[in-house]
């Protein structure tokens, strides 16, 4: 049985009140949702709180999920991102999107450099970005928002979004370059 078919079956059972199916769904997706929340918030505790809020949101919206339009993992992860953005709005973090950081120009990084890094290292690289850069990078590169959508969500202009993304990329390349220069080339992100 494919993942999507399996997901639909689980969802139907959850809707009909089966708590064990919810446990299965949680085990399957909690890491992905946690990873998503971690990308937006460095604080592990805060990320866990958001995972909780996200699961509640997903649970309440399960009846609205249309499996013909998108995979459950894509749909549900978008719910998680929206929960993160809602939290950012609550904390009025968007005022920091214009963090000014001197970024060295003309950084050259091998395109395949990221292939050598594992998920943990890449997460660490993203988390090292300032909040504004990180938010725009996450939304555009990983979560697939357009610049217009980012502008609408964050209350910034499209051009600001583009600028932020450009700066984020440069900073990420710079960090990636310095990672390559490390003896073991590894970051640590633990509990």
């Amino acid at each position: 049985m494919s993942d999507q078919k399996n997901d639909i079956e689980i969802i139907q059972k959850i809707i009909s009140g089966d708590q064990k199916s919810f446990d299965i769904l949680y085990k399957k997706y909690s890491r992905l949702y946690f990873l998503t929340c971690i990308r937006y918030f460095k604080n592990r505790q805060e990320a866990e709180d958001l995972v909780q809020e996200a699961f509640i949101s997903i649970f309440k919206s399960l009846k609205q999920y249309d499996h013909t339009k998108s995979n459950f993992s894509t749909w549900s992860n978008r719910v998680v991102v929206n929960v993160c953005l809602q939290q950012l709005r609550r904390k009025n973090i968007f005022r920091d999107v214009d963090d000014i950081i001197d970024i060295a120009q003309n950084v050259v990084v091998e395109p395949t450099a990221v292939d050598h890094l594992n998920l943990k290292d890449l997460t660490k690289l993203i988390l090292n970005l300032p909040k504004g850069y990180r938010t725009v990078f996450n939304m555009y590169v990983i979560d697939g928002f357009t610049h217009k959508e980012i502008g609408d969500q964050l209350g910034i202009s499209t051009s600001t979004s583009k600028t932020q993304l450009m700066k984020a990329r440069k900073m990420l390349q710079l960090n990636l370059k310095s990672t390559e220069q490390l003896p073991n080339g590894s970051y640590a992100y633990g509990r």
Binding site: K28, R31, L32, F34, L35, S73, T74, L122, I126, I142
Partner: peptide, 22 residues
């Protein structure tokens, strides 16, 4: 680089990533 990010961070199969266990 960005495709790698997108692929890695949207992959639901994170069974080996224990550090992501809430």
């Amino acid at each position: 680089m960005e495709d790698r990010y997108k692929e890695l961070f949207n992959d639901p199969n994170l069974g080996n990533e224990d550090w992501l266990e809430p």
